[in-house]
Design a protein around this nucleic acid. Structure first.
Length: 502
RNA sequence: GGGCCGGUAGCUCAGUGGCAGAGCAGGGGACUUUUAAUCCCUUGGUCGUGGGUUCGAAUCCCACCCGGCUCGCCA
């Protein structure tokens, strides 16, 4: 996301920019969670690119299957790298061979960097490369101990790592052309040189002192003799206090979020705070999601030049523009587009027989454009999902099965009389009110006769039916219920004992 | 234990030397038909703690406290 926005910003300044995304699929399989039990012994430790797709849905490998999930996720968020490259494709071309050669020639220097930068003490025969075992095809279990300038001596050790078992084979082999793979920090640095990388943000888990980024930076400078790319360390998004990350396959939270929140609001969520600020996002039982929409709409309004409440963060136009899905969107037109308020939609969705499109068009004051109808549909889906999975109790409108005793007891006498009068009026109509409009007219008419302010009239209705002080348009609410039930409830509430002052 | 980042209103966050802010939430009010909308008003702070520099510190320096990440492998 950060890289996508950087690329967009550079292009906006007229700079030619290429956005690359690499998948390190020569790395060994080290997580058995997604493997079938009988595959564990055989597959653990093999390169991810060589492990068959466990789902059997047509991907060439385990790596391709799972990476596709993220590629799709990125595409859905408007992130379209110019090129995805796979290390399992790069190594066989021989493009990495010069870097492998340099790393092996300078193995002692690499070990020294690990000691100095990361305080990691590798054995004196350790070499910064692993090879695919010609016997068992694993890469995570092999260690290289000698280098003669053309070939390496490897051992496939039984107990090199705890998560995979080697076969015990050893021998001389060429490390080039796809057989060998540089260690992670070296591979990272080699990619910078190979692709001419100039900017590479990374998360704070890597950006720590002595961490992967420090090592890769040192290796780039001292082994491959190239200045490392600009780093933009960024913080994480915490969902309910837990880290969400795409890089370690902890994608479950990411997908759950993306299912509920439309892409532009997801982008907005990431872009609004500074990169080094942890984003605390707690959608569960909170108004975090409605608030996210409201803030987005506020930024849109400000960008369109409409007045907004209070102050707005500096750079709001950029934040809004980069939150848009389409990098070439007409920002002014997008900002000016009408967007129905999320919480209002969530409310309307809970009332039966509401023509949402008509209501929203009425709020706007004119017909919705195709784009706005799309936004509406998107928000309706989001609001439904929110109500189902995340909304707090107070956002749920539900007609109580019985008279809400406490809330009704808090009503004043004139409000109670009003409820009785409304019941009488409903009964005395030649036709029982059926439409929301008929009920709404009656509610206002009786309130006028009783000299009760509209606010207090509505409040008494909400108390009697919902057990709360406010609610959706009362006429339509009553119209959605059985007439006899409505009259009965009105009478019960009117007859309820008033609250005794403590 | 070392390192990095963070700690500002109930919540989410702005604010890098010049009167502590916004949104939301909370409280009060307006509204004869959008009534969870809209509009107006408003409560709320030991800027993590303690020291220092300065005419002046949320901001710069030092120490400490708390939280997250990281410091063997893997990525």
């Amino acid at each position: 996301m950060i890289l996508d926005v950087i690329a967009r910003a550079l292009r906006a300044r007229g700079l030619e920019t290429t956005l690359l995304y690499g998948i390190d699929d020569m790395d060994p399989m080290d997580a058995q969670a997604l493997l079938t039990p009988d595959a564990v012994e055989h597959e653990m430790g093999r390169p991810l690119a060589h492990v068959p797709d466990q789902e059997g849905d047509g991907h060439a490998s385990y790596a391709r299957h799972h990476a596709q999930v993220f590629i799709d996720l990125f595409a859905g968020l408007g992130i379209h790298p110019d090129r995805y490259y796979w290390m399992s494709d790069i190594y066989p071309t021989g493009d990495m061979d010069p870097f492998i050669r340099t790393a092996l020639d300078r193995a002692e220097q690499v070990r020294e960097i690990y000691r100095r930068v990361a305080n990691v003490q590798h054995p004196s025969d350790w070499h910064p490369i692993q090879v695919v075992c010609p016997n068992c095809a694993k890469i995570g279990t092999t260690i290289v101990t000698k280098w003669d300038g053309e070939r390496v001596f490897f051992e496939c050790r039984q107990a090199l790592v705890t998560w995979a078992r080697g076969c015990g084979t050893s021998g001389w082999t060429s490390p080039f052309g796809g057989t060998g793979k540089l260690g992670w920090n070296l591979e990272w640095a080699a990619q910078w040189s190979l692709f001419g990388v100039t900017i590479e943000p990374c998360g704070k888990d890597l950006s720590t002192a002595g961490g992967s980024r420090d090592r890769a930076d040192a290796i780039a400078r001292e082994i491959f003799e190239r200045e490392p790319p600009l780093n933009v360390p960024y913080e994480f998004l915490n969902i309910g206090g837990k880290k969400m990350s795409t890089s370690k396959g902890r994608g479950a939270a990411a997908h759950a979020i993306v299912e509920v929140i439309p892409p532009e609001q997801v982008r907005f969520l990431f872009l609004r705070p500074r990169p080094n600020q942890v984003i605390e996002f707690e959608p569960e039982g909170s108004d975090a999601i409605p608030r996210l929409f409201d803030e987005f709409d506020r930024f849109a309004a400000a960008t369109a030049g409409r007045p907004v409440r209070g102050e707005i963060a500096p750079g709001f136009e950029s934040t809004f523009a980069y939150a848009l899905l389409d990098p070439n969107a007409d920002v002014a037109a997008e900002a000016a587009a009408f967007r129905p308020a999320f919480s209002h939609l969530a409310l309307l969705l809970q009332i039966p027989n509401v023509d949402l499109a008509a209501r929203v068009a009425a709020e706007k004051g004119s017909a919705l454009t195709a784009r706005e109808t799309g936004t509406l549909d998107e928000r309706i889906r989001a609001a439904r999902a929110w109500l189902e999975a995340y909304a707090p109790e107070r956002a749920i409108v539900a007609v109580r099965d019985t008279v809400p005793a406490e809330e009704v007891a808090a009503l004043d006498d004139d409000q109670r009389r009003y409820l009785a009068a409304l019941a009488d009026a409903g009964m005395s109509e030649t036709e029982p009110p059926e439409s929301g409009e008929a009920w709404q007219n009656l509610i206002f008419a009786i309130a006028g006769e009783a000299g009760l302010s509209n606010g207090r009239a509505f409040a008494s209705l909400y108390a009697a039916f919902l057990g709360r002080t406010n609610g959706p348009r009362a006429g339509w609410l009553l119209a959605s219920l059985e007439f006899d039930f409505v009259v009965g409830r009105l009478r019960q509430a009117a007859a309820a004992a008033p609250q005794v002052p403590a």
